[in-house]
Amino acid sequence: LYQFRPDSRQLVIEEDVQTITLYVQRLYGFRSNRSSISYKTWPGTAQPDRDFTSVADGQLLFDSRQTSSAIRLSILDDSLTEPDEDFYVNLTSVRVLSASLPSIEAQPRIVSQNSVAKVTIRANDVVSGFLSIGPAIIRVSEDSQEGAPQQKLALRVRRSLGLTGVVSAKIRAYAGLKTPEVDAAQFHREHNGTWALEGEDFELETQTVMLLEGQNEVEVSVLILNDQEPEGQEAFFIYLRQAEGGAQIVSVPDELGFTSFAKIIILGENLTVITGLNNKDFFCPIDI
């Protein structure tokens, strides 16, 4: 039986390591034979021959009595600002090169559940940082006292993993109307209820944010409008797009749970409960 050694199944490396080593082990059986293991690389978010040297048909030899052998792969360093990326190494087949098998049924094989190694290349070229917005979920009441100013909601755009240079990003709102500039499916997965209406329920005051050299946070302002209409709970999203200046928008939540968008829920607190009605109030005669 052949498989990746436990410490080689999940490998996290820096981009500048140049070479990585993955170990394959022979557990038992056929140890007196010379064997050849075929393997290949498979891209994930890392790009072959840009982030790592791809291998289409690699061969790993096991000599007689050898129980462990090493696969060595090259990691390609670049100057691009990139998030963490990954690729995979698959053990695909095994064949015996010497000696005879005890029977046709007795064939060496690869342990399928341990036949894939995942390699994650950590982002080390990020000097201008990753941008995120949050808190991830905000709940706010639409109601305000008559004559009082409308509520102003403050979100924060954070810059992490690099504070070099001046960076910026556009701030946009999504409220149920599909637009080609963003993948709307991510919002519909998070919300399947009533959508708030921009211009009636809320107003986005901040359209663009800019962070100066060394600055790690800036505020985004959203106005919650009180239309005095009885309404239930509604929601909308504020999201980041078109980061400039070398920064990138996060693809996964950061250490504070901030991600590429924030969900704002407007609680339906101005619904009035009507009491004092009985069954006769809802009776409607029907002519027969």
Rank of each mutant, 00 (worst) to 15 (best):
V116E: 11
V127A: 13
F130I: 05
A106C: 07
I138D: 13
S168Y: 00
V96M: 15
G134E: 05
Q186N: 02
G193K: 01
R156K: 15
V182I: 12
Q107K: 14
A185Q: 11
V111D: 09
D143V: 14
N90R: 11
V111L: 12
I137Y: 03
L101F: 04
R109G: 10
R95K: 13
H188V: 07
R156D: 14
A148S: 14
V116M: 12
F130S: 12
S98A: 10
L97A: 09
A185G: 04
L177R: 05
S115R: 11
V111M: 06
L177E: 03
L91W: 02
P135Q: 15
R156V: 14
F130R: 10
I133Q: 05
E181V: 03
R109P: 00
S132T: 15
A106W: 03
V96P: 00
E105K: 14
D143K: 15
Q107M: 13
H188M: 03
D143G: 10
R158Y: 15
R109E: 08
E198Q: 11
T92E: 02
V157G: 01
V127R: 12
R189C: 02
A136F: 08
A99W: 01
R109S: 14
G134I: 06
V94D: 04
G147W: 13
G176E: 05
R172H: 03
V140W: 09
R172N: 10
R158K: 15
L197S: 04
K178E: 09
P180I: 02
E198G: 02
S103K: 01
A196G: 06
T92H: 01
G199K: 06
S115D: 12
S168R: 04
S168T: 05
I171P: 02
A185M: 06
E142H: 07
R109A: 10
T92S: 02
S115C: 13
Q113N: 12
